[in-house]
Every structure is written in C-alpha cells, then in structure tokens.
C-alpha cells in the first residue's frame, strides 16, 4: 500500500486504487507529477500527504514539461527513477495537449498516465474534449453533441515506443502494462478509463462493474501499441466477434449521465462501436 487510506477521494472513486496499483509496480523510486485535477486534492495538503513517493504538483497545462525537467535533472545526477505524469483527461487532452505532444515528440523518457473520467470533475463535472457523445455534464445539460477526442491514437501517431489503454476492472492487465512501460526507454503512455460516481451519476458501489461493462461492450477496448505494433489485450482479445460483445446499452443505462440519450442515439453509438471494431479487426 503506497497510497494511504483516508485520502480525500469520493466514495467509490477509483483513483486511489489506480495510483496504488501503479506504484506497486514502479516502486519507491517514482516521482509523480500531478497537474490540477481531482488528484491534486486527493494527494493531501500542507497538513500531510497520503503518498509514499515524492509528488510534484503542477500548473494545469505544465505536467509533461515539468516531468521532462525532473527527468533531465535526475539523469544529470545519474539517479535512476521513474518519472510519471498522473493527469486527468482535461489536463491531458485539452489544456495540456501541447505540452503532452511536445514531450511525446521529443520522446522524453517519462511515463504518462491519463486517468480519464471523461470530464472536468475537480471543478464540478464540466465537459472536456474527452467527454463522450450524449453525456450530460453541467456545461452540456442536454448531453454533449460532439464526439470524444481520440487521445491514445493521437499520442500513438507521434511514434512513441509504447501506448496502451487500461481499466481498473482489469487490474492485472493494467499492472502488466505499467510493468512493460517501466522497462521501456522513451515516452510511454497509458490511458485509463476511470469511472467517477458523482460525475457519471451512478451509485458508488458500481465503479468496477461499470469499468468492466465499458470493456465488455467494446466501448473501451484494451490494447497496447508497442513500437507501432497494435495488439488487443485481456478480455478485449475475445471481443472481435460482435456476438461476444454486450450491447452498449448495458453500459449506458447504469449511468445517469446518459439518461437523455434517445434510442436513436443509442443505436447510432452501437453502430459506431461496431464500426470501430471492424477497423480494429483490420489492424489487429
């Protein structure tokens, strides 16, 4: 246990367990760089912090650059450590995108974990570029009308050595990916779908069930792209055949944020997911 209990996360929040699972693999010699997000609060205050590794808090848009600098300084001291950016979807794909892209393009020797709760949760559930189509947020009260920004693909297009998706519901797959990433030199990116009970409007006992359904319905495929080579992992390997995938509705209906989606829209989303898997079939 490298992240202490009793931190400030909401009940049912997956973030503490996600960080703990990360640190179990990367170990004591890890520096976490955390931009403005829910994690800034979870990581404690001047009265104390729950983490057993150094945590560098960062301006919202600055984490990949700060991590680059920390790594450069550690290198100059010949000190071996894993520098990890731990950032939300907003810090990653919206305000921090230029900094992320810069670090990826320079192939900085850092690990980047985006925990994607699909909105700006820290400020009270506002839409982000990674909020999916149809989802309610406080700034999309009728449901978001635009699609989700495909950040893992965007990062992969930079030609970095490692990109993966992961889920807290498949923790061995997640930790295997962190382990692999730890051994690779250069820019490594892992994108975690991170269900948020208050933001997605579901009961705090359902976090893992919803994380699981995201994978089972095919909405959140688990994969890795190692040196440009794409590979499905864990349960997702078995989901190419459409009949193996659960209908997306099962995932949507447990979450209040999708309650305004019409059956037409659900059908459209189902089609998009199916088309996406046809594409995956071609490259896998």
């Amino acid at each position: 246990m490298m992240l202490m209990r009793g931190n400030a996360a909401c009940p049912g929040c997956p973030i503490p367990r996600e960080i703990d699972a990360l640190l179990e693999v990367t170990g004591q010699k890890t520096v976490l760089v955390v931009p403005a997000s829910c994690t800034s609060v979870i990581m404690g205050d001047t009265n104390g912090m729950p983490s057993s590794v150094p945590v560098v808090h960062s301006a919202f848009a600055a984490a990949p650059a700060i991590a680059s600098g920390i790594k450069a300084a550690l290198n100059s001291k010949k000190e071996d450590a894993t520098v990890v950016v731990w950032a939300g979807d907003g810090g990653t794909g919206d305000i921090g995108l230029a900094s992320l892209s810069g670090a990826a393009e320079r192939n900085e020797d850092i690990m980047y974990l985006c925990y994607d709760n699909e909105a700006y949760m820290n400020t009270g559930v506002q839409r982000s570029g990674l909020t999916p189509y149809g989802a309610w947020t406080t700034t999309t009260p009728e449901g978001k009308r635009e699609r989700k920004k495909p950040i893992p693909q965007i990062v992969a297009e930079h030609g970095v050595p490692y990109v993966a998706t992961a889920s807290i519901a498949y923790i061995f797959d997640y930790q295997a990916k962190v382990k692999k990433a730890k051994e690779i030199q250069g820019f490594r990116y892992i994108h975690l779908l991170s269900p948020c009970p208050p933001g997605w409007r579901f009961d705090s006992s359902l976090t893992i069930r919803i994380a699981k359904l995201a994978v089972e319905t095919g909405i959140w495929p688990l994969y890795e792209i190692e040196k440009g080579k794409f590979r499905l992992t864990s349960l997702s390997k078995t989901l190419i055949d459409k009949s193996k995938r659960k209908p997306v509705l099962e995932y949507l209906k447990l979450q209040g944020r999708f309650s305004k989606m019409t059956s037409e829209e659900v059908k459209k989303l189902q089609n998009e997911v199916d088309e996406f898997w046809e594409e995956i079939q071609k490259i896998d």
Partner: peptide, 21 residues
Amino acid sequence: IRVESEHSALAAVYGAALAGS
C-alpha cells in the same frame, strides 16, 4: 530541452530545479 512553448520552457526548468539542477 527543446520545448514547444515558453510555458513549457519554464515548466521544464522548474522541474529540473526542484530535482537539483
């Protein structure tokens, strides 16, 4: 560090300075 902006320029040296450079 060949950064992509001034925000990142200062962020990068800030990180390095924290870590002792």
